[in-house]
């Protein structure tokens, strides 16, 4: 029992942290995008306002759907919040209940994807079907690439635990190795694809020719919709935290003293602000790809990941 009870407090803190960072990050991303396209940005807290409004509304369930449709949003939300324990946010000395490694994290992400797709197909509408089908298509290409990126990073550190990997890389040199550069590039593409960002998917349109993620959410309303959107924001933050742990672990706290943690919090904020700026810039500069070009995009991620571990074997040993 003492292998996880003492960590309950910090785990709860981590979940809260990620759960609250998610809407803030989304707000920041929207501010960046609005400023870059010469619009007046909404407040940083706009996602909070949207979701609290949704949470107070009724839910509308499509005729003929089963219980799976109703239970998918809370299940997706709970899984994503749970998986936030698997990535280091502030410190690398694993004081959360890290119940699995990075591969378990990809497993949970796959489960989330399956549940969302099943919930969408359960509506029995063409939109739900095409959303679910396209989401699985992006997923089957992104998942092996993710595993390869994790392989590359863990080959350097000898562990698949994100905390250990971050710890090993944190104390290394600041100069990135070729394998990490390729891995990082691959991970950026995966992050865009997995989180339904431009150029794979546009979170702000509902055009049936191109939409993926939004097509799955079309029939959700009220609290279900809020949970789904909040879950997606959490997923984005978890991917960012994973990217930070594998490729930019500098500034994470080691042995946690309070001052260390506060410093790490400052670094985290800085990194997230930068990440939001980079993502916003990418989304403003790029156009959405045709859906048939998506496999090529994800294959590029896969090939970059392969280059990553090959360059480790060839150049770095």
């Amino acid at each position: 029992m003492n292998t996880f009870l003492p960590f309950l407090g910090t785990s709860l803190f981590q979940m809260l942290l990620v759960g609250l960072l998610a809407p803030l990050f989304l707000g920041w991303l929207n501010i960046v995008k609005a400023l870059l396209s010469n619009r007046t940005p909404a407040s940083l807290f706009q996602p909070f306002r949207d979701w609290s409004k949704l949470l107070s509304k009724e839910s509308i369930v499509p005729q003929g759907s089963s219980d799976l449709f109703r239970w998918a949003p809370p299940a997706v939300f709970a899984l994503l919040l749970t998986s936030s324990l698997l990535v280091p946010a502030l410190g690398t000395h694993g004081k959360t209940v890290a119940f699995g490694d990075a591969l378990v994290l990809t497993g949970i992400m796959a489960l989330v994807r399956v549940l969302m797709a099943l919930g969408a197909i359960d509506t029995g509408t063409p939109f739900g079907n095409l959303g679910g089908r396209r989401e699985m298509m992006v997923g089957f290409l992104a998942e092996p690439a993710t595993v390869l990126v994790i392989f590359t990073a863990s080959i350097l550190s000898g562990s698949t635990m994100t905390f250990q990997t971050a710890d090993a890389l944190r104390s290394g040199t600041l100069l990135p190795t070729p394998s990490l550069v390729f891995g990082g590039l691959a991970f950026l593409l995966i992050l865009l694809g997995e989180n339904a960002r431009i150029p794979i998917d546009n979170p702000s349109t509902h055009l049936e020719l191109t939409m993926i993620h939004e097509a799955m959410l079309l029939e959700y309303s009220g609290p279900s919709l809020a949970l789904m959107e909040w879950g997606s924001a959490i997923k984005l933050v978890i991917y960012l935290l994973l990217g930070i742990a594998l490729f930019f672990p500098w500034g994470l706290a080691g042995d946690e003293g309070l001052s260390d943690l506060i410093r790490a919090g400052g670094f985290l904020l800085l990194k997230l602000l930068t990440a939001g700026f980079v993502l916003g810039l990418l989304e403003t500069l790029m156009a959405k790809l045709r859906i048939f070009r998506v496999p090529e995009f994800m294959t590029l991620a896969f090939l970059l990941a392969i280059l990553g571990f090959l360059s480790h074997f060839v150049l770095e040993v």
Partner: peptide, 12 residues
């Protein structure tokens, strides 16, 4: 190196 606890995952 790697650890996994399905029970804790389910519990959480």
């Amino acid at each position: 190196r790697a650890q996994y606890s399905p029970l804790l995952l389910l519990l959480s």
